[in-house]
């Protein structure tokens, strides 16, 4: 060790002795810990958090189950974006979430089933776009 390093060690040792006393540390810390706290341990905050999450999940489920209105009147096509994995085009769809297959049933205006098909594809976690094309009979 050279002189500078030796002097530095001695200086740091000396100066450390001038550090503030730790006698008040616990007392000073206590109110800060109570204020900071643990959100997951506070019953009121936890209940609020759970309620918010439940509301968000319920809203997401409702949006996912809502029929998407696509009504081409006559030949032509209509496009709609289907939220997540439960597209109902135009009136009925069953799917589980998350889904890798979606059953789409299209009803005629009298309630008769026009077509029903199962679409299998990759897991849908993002909104998907569905295009319905109505053609004139040959």
């Amino acid at each position: 060790m050279n002189d500078v390093e030796r002097l530095l060690r001695q200086t740091l040792d000396d100066e450390a002795g001038r550090a503030p006393s730790a006698s008040r540390l616990v007392d000073d810390l206590r109110p800060r810990l109570e204020t900071a706290g643990h959100p997951w341990r506070r019953p009121a905050l936890a209940a609020t958090g759970i309620a918010l999450v439940a509301a968000a999940v319920a809203a997401a489920l409702l949006v996912g189950q809502r029929p998407v209105p696509v009504s081409p009147s006559g030949p032509g096509s209509a496009t709609t974006q289907v939220p997540r994995a439960s597209p109902e085009v135009p009136t009925s769809t069953s799917a589980t979430t998350p889904a890798s297959s979606v059953t789409t049933t299209i009803y005629g205006t009298s309630g008769s089933v026009v077509t029903s098909r199962v679409v299998t594809g990759p897991l849908q976690t993002e909104p998907v776009t569905v295009t319905i094309t109505v053609s004139s009979p040959p």
Binding site: E15, A19, P20, S21, A22, L25
Partner: peptide, 21 residues
């Protein structure tokens, strides 16, 4: 832990920041 190691932690903090408060 705070009671036993607090003084050493304060010494370290004092040396790095150079001010008691």
């Amino acid at each position: 832990f705070v009671r036993t190691r607090g003084p050493a932690l304060l010494r370290y903090a004092h040396l790095v920041c150079g001010d008691g408060h």
